[in-house]
Design a protein around this nucleic acid. Sequence first.
DNA 1: TTTTGTGCAAAAGGTTTGCATACGA
DNA 2: TCGTATGCAAACCTTTTGCACAAAA
Lengths: 155, 155
Amino acid sequence: MGLILESSRNKSIEEAFRRTGVRITPQRFSVLEHLMLHPDHATVDDLAAALNRRYAKASRATVYNTLHALVEAGLVREFTLDGKAARYDANVDPHHHFVCDVCGAVEDLEWFEIPALQQQPGPKMPRTQKGEHSVKAYNIRSYEVIVRGVCRRCR
Amino acid sequence: MGLILESSRNKSIEEAFRRTGVRITPQRFSVLEHLMLHPDHATVDDLAAALNRRYAKASRATVYNTLHALVEAGLVREFTLDGKAARYDANVDPHHHFVCDVCGAVEDLEWFEIPALQQQPGPKMPRTQKGEHSVKAYNIRSYEVIVRGVCRRCR
DNA sequence: TTTTGTGCAAAAGGTTTGCATACGA
DNA sequence: TCGTATGCAAACCTTTTGCACAAAA
């Protein structure tokens, strides 16, 4: 990565902090930088290890604090899968997720709409025999899709 | 609930154990019975408390063991949300989930297909500028939708 | 009678919290 | 300088594990 690209990246990271009013520290800068450079949904442990390999030392507690601040500011998205350690993503635009059944890797999927969820809400709350509800009866604020399969590296 | 309904329910629970070759114990019977009667996605704590309120005493460890056996046998489905305690569901038919943003309640949604995921898989793995992938490039085995909003009790 | 489930307690992750110190603005 | 982020350790919550005992088939 060239110096020009690197410095423009630094600018955009600084700009993100300034825009959201989050105070800049070496640890916070490095966490956001790492998430922007590596779209592999790092865990807290991944981030702590990556930071301590470079110049900005950070304790686990600081990584947690930092991530909470970044999520709060809308700069990072949190994603927890099957009760395991939370994963973090600098892509905060709407998107879905793909999870590899073999290696557990998580990848972002481009956003797509679900026609069944675009319908006008209805006043009724019909229930099936299995206790399920029709999606028509809800006030929907958001939704996300988790797709599972085998990633190309595991094929 | 009348005696006839109750005895036919007991029959169907026993039949489920027999069909899947899972050994019947009072604890296991009560866990499956509770999940069948209450479609509210109980946690391990909920189940342990509910069982100890009735006749079949069960330690937390036994509830965990029991749930693993039932999930393994395909009689129960596990659902974990946001890294909190796992929830369990006797509805093992394909369905989606609704989560209330206010009270956190989880409800089953009837199954619906996602047209974007029915497409033929393609050989390419296009990437967007944000590092996202097109869903066309994947070998999809399954998917689930998590819908969020406000449930009718919280409106 | 043999196999396997149960219960207790201890341990193992992952995350949160309290507090003294250090640092950014 | 003032406010707050950091780092450490302890606490907390959920889940797993080891082992002696009890119960199911």
